[in-house]
């Protein structure tokens, strides 16, 4: 089963994404902030990670940085409300495979995840 990690500090968003991807047949892990995310990564390396940026303690940028240093093969999708051009650029520069802006289309997200994992 393909493992997906979803990181967001907003419970309702976590809930919706978890529901969505479980239904699609993925093994879904969730984390409420960057710190939790790093713990899960250390134990259970996922194939793909959906990352919010603004989170307490460790933010999304740092998680992405860590992943790009240690685990190059993991696909990274930034899913964030930060929609300024420079934010997007920064995210892509950090090595993200995709940058999606909230609010997002669930269909689109699921489709993109599928493409990335194939």
């Amino acid at each position: 089963m393909i493992k997906i990690l979803i990181v967001d500090d907003e419970p309702n968003i976590l809930l919706s994404l978890e529901f969505l991807f479980k239904k699609e047949g993925y093994h879904v892990f969730i984390a409420r902030d960057g710190e939790e995310a790093l713990d899960i990564i250390a134990e259970n390396l996922p194939e793909l990670i959906i990352l919010d940026i603004m989170m307490p303690n460790v933010d999304g940028y740092e998680v992405a940085k860590h992943l790009r240093e240690k685990h190059k093969g993991i696909k990274i999708i930034f899913l964030t409300a930060k929609s300024k051009q420079q934010d997007i650029q920064k995210g892509l520069d950090l090595g993200a495979d995709l940058y999606l802006v909230k609010p997002f289309s669930t269909k689109e997200l699921v489709a993109k995840v599928k493409t990335l994992l194939n």
Partner: peptide, 10 residues
């Protein structure tokens, strides 16, 4: 955007 995102997703 935060509540909006949840609303749209659900």
């Amino acid at each position: 955007k935060t509540p909006l995102t949840s609303i749209r997703a659900f």
